[in-house]
Amino acid sequence: MKLSHFINEHIEEILVEWDSFARTLQPAAKGMSMLALEDHARQMLAAIALDIDTAENPAQQYEKSKGMAPARIGAESAASIHGTQRQVNGFTLVQLTAEYRALRATVLRLWLPKIERVTEATTNDMIRFNETIDQALAESAVTYSERATRTRDTFLAILGHDLRSPLTTITMAGDFLSRAEVGNERTLKVGARIKRSAATMTTMVNDLLEYARTQLGGEMPVTPSLSNMRDICQSAMNDASAAHPNCEFRMEISGELAGYFDSARLHQVFANLLNNAAQYSSKTFPITILAVGEPDAVFVHISNRGPVIPPHSLQTIFNPLVQLSMDGHEADRPSTSIGLGLFIAREITEAHGGSIAAASTDAAGTIFTVRLPRMQLA
């Protein structure tokens, strides 16, 4: 019996097996109805049977075997919808994959006893069936992953937004306790510590919100206006100094520094770079921020002396959720990063039409270079 005909004629029997296996995928399947457990399985089996009977040339079969079949035009496939629904219902990606493994085994186990003699047509049916199952699994995995990623990023955005209000309260409490007229030397120290901690948490929350924005498909918004890079760098250095009172920061300027920039965004860039430098810098040397005005652009170099960043780390340093782990990093210096600061710095810089790069050697230390064109963006 041709495999496509077997699937169509025995679809109810196959679905019973599907339901039986799906119920073992706990805890997600607990309490789910048969209709919910089957979730587009009938449509997927019908599509598989149709695909087996669809003529394909060797090139098309080869592309499908690599998971590179052409995307369907129009409505989503049943497999794509199934991937989304399984994520919504709390199934893991491993469990989703197991469903297809069980489906493959069930169909072949029920069909092969119906075969009296293995022929070339039988072998071709099995090849086409496996290709189609693999393609359906790939479609389900893609939509499952997309849904999972979007859910995670939405959660991060909501979390970051909701943390802002209590952080504002903490910051205000730190400001109040830091006033000389409020208390004594002890309360002044407590207030200063609260302010530093609140500043660190605010940086993390801001980075989290910006990351969620980029992952949810939004562009990094910039609003350029006539600004002076000296003022932007000074403001960022003031914040970094407050967050890292034991670090020495120095600023040097050269050339014309006026241009059309988003001051608030670039403040975030340089504050992130300075905070990053403070985490890895040796206390023996100052952290330097050098702003240089060139005819067409402004360059800002932030340098520190500390452990050399390995070449392989330099290749991924601007990727999200990457944190450096280097020998010589002082264990007593707290981290103020969740691995997003450099990623956000790159996104903001590129939104200005600029670029950012890093270099690290024993002789020169670690230097981050930000290039920003001074022309007004359209």
Rank of each mutant, 00 (worst) to 15 (best):
A378T: 13
E181D: 15
M237T: 15
I48G: 01
T84S: 14
E185Q: 14
E120A: 14
A243C: 08
Y280T: 05
M126C: 13
S313Q: 11
W111F: 11
T106Q: 00
M237D: 03
K64Q: 14
A236W: 07
V308K: 06
L324R: 01
Y211T: 13
M44L: 08
T349Q: 06
L257M: 06
D19Q: 15
I48R: 04
D175L: 12
R179S: 12
A79Y: 03
A363T: 13
A148E: 12
E146A: 10
L216Q: 12
D53Y: 04
R23S: 13
L137C: 10
I115E: 14
H267R: 06
E76M: 11
A351S: 12
T223F: 07
T143I: 04
D362G: 12
L93K: 10
L257E: 02
P58R: 12
T214K: 04
T143P: 00
A22L: 05
F270Y: 15
I158A: 14
A363P: 01
S178P: 01
A351G: 10
L110F: 08
E9Q: 15
V269M: 03
V182S: 11
D134Q: 10
G306N: 06
E252C: 01
Q315L: 15
R374H: 06
A264Y: 00
A258H: 12
I232Q: 02
R147W: 13
R104M: 00
T97F: 01
A28R: 02
L372P: 02
P295S: 05
S282W: 07
V182H: 11
M44F: 01
A363K: 13
P320S: 03
P320G: 03
E181Y: 11
L372H: 05
Y100C: 03
M44S: 07
V16M: 05
N89C: 12
Q95V: 13
F155R: 14
N238V: 11
A36W: 05
Y144R: 07
D262I: 08
A258R: 10
M220C: 13
Q376V: 06
T171R: 11
T203N: 07
Y280R: 03
A28P: 01
S263H: 05
A364L: 08
V205C: 01
A136F: 04
I344P: 02
A291K: 08
S165C: 08
R230F: 09
R152Q: 13
T151M: 15
V269F: 02
A278M: 05
L93W: 00
